[in-house]
């Protein structure tokens, strides 16, 4: 059985995008180790509501590591200290009695704070709308087995497609770059035959949109790869660069 722990929580609170934020401090007592990090915040919020105060606002939904909604910067790491896990998959047994735990929102010019720990990630949707698709309508497709695809290629595409669009890569990057996110989608499509016809156009338009929306550039620090909850590899960035250069050479 997991032990109960007590600790100090420092949480970023900010009323709105233009307002000044500050850390608020909360003392947490006797939290069971098998409580998830978000359930721990639920406990805190319940106590705030019971005192007549407004709860801490944070994004979350599936609570099983796949929707990409949760987005907390815990003790200086996007999604906290665990590797290959989202915030909702983080359990309190990872922390020690007497710890001070700092919780902040994603910090990036492209992700403005909405309130407290909730940020606006519509920039990610806009990048996808700039080219993250195959230009087809519904119906009239060839049989799914008409075109064999090597198992290794399909697996590699799946590795890239596993991205959950949470934005941890941007939050981890000192430049606020979205290259890992963009490259995961570009790679998935560039690897598969159905995505190849538009591969060049896609790489160019998604990168142009990324630049336009205020994301920074990649300087190969690999922080994104280290913090990605789905362990998306930066080899995808290399593939994106190749696709981008190929496209530019054709211009």
């Amino acid at each position: 059985m997991d032990k109960n722990i007590s600790f100090t929580l420092k949480v970023w609170r900010q009323r709105g995008p233009k307002e000044k934020g500050a850390f608020a401090t909360y003392e947490m007592k006797d939290i069971p180790g098998d409580t998830s990090f978000l359930e721990m915040l639920d406990i805190l919020n319940e106590s705030l509501v019971n005192k007549g105060e407004e709860p801490i606002v944070f994004d979350h939904d599936c609570r099983e590591g796949i929707c990409g909604m949760c987005s907390l910067y815990v003790n200086g790491h996007p999604h906290g200290p665990a590797t290959g896990a989202t915030t909702c998959q983080l359990y309190m047994r990872r922390f020690k009695d007497g710890d001070t735990i700092t919780v902040e929102p994603w910090r990036s010019a492209a992700f403005p704070v909405i309130r407290d720990l909730m940020v606006d990630r519509t920039a990610f949707d806009k990048i996808q709308q700039a080219g993250g698709y195959v230009s087809i309508n519904t119906g009239g497709m060839p049989d799914a087995n008409a075109l064999p695809i090597g198992k290794d290629i399909a697996e590699e595409a799946m590795d890239a497609a596993a991205c959950i669009g949470c934005g941890a890569c941007v939050a981890a990057c000192k430049n606020g770059s979205a290259m890992l996110f963009v490259s995961a989608k570009v790679s998935q499509f560039a690897l598969l035959p159905q995505g190849k016809p538009e591969a060049a156009k896609r790489a160019k338009s998604m990168i142009a949109k990324m630049d336009e929306l205020g994301f920074g550039n990649c300087t190969n620090t690999r922080a994104c790869e280290a913090e990605c909850p789905k362990c998306i590899s930066i080899s995808n960035i290399a593939r994106l660069n190749r696709e981008f250069i190929k496209a530019k050479l054709k211009d």
Binding site: Y133, V134, I136, T138, G139, M141, P142, D143, A144, N145, L147, P148, I149, G150, K151, A154, E155, A157, M158, A161, Q188, F189, L192, Q194, G195
Partner: peptide, 20 residues
């Protein structure tokens, strides 16, 4: 037809060594 549509969208379904 759903499977055909998804494959055309680049959904990376699991495949056998023969590519199917």
């Amino acid at each position: 037809a759903i499977i055909d549509q998804c494959v055309a969208q680049c959904v990376p379904f699991a495949r056998e060594y023969g590519g199917l």
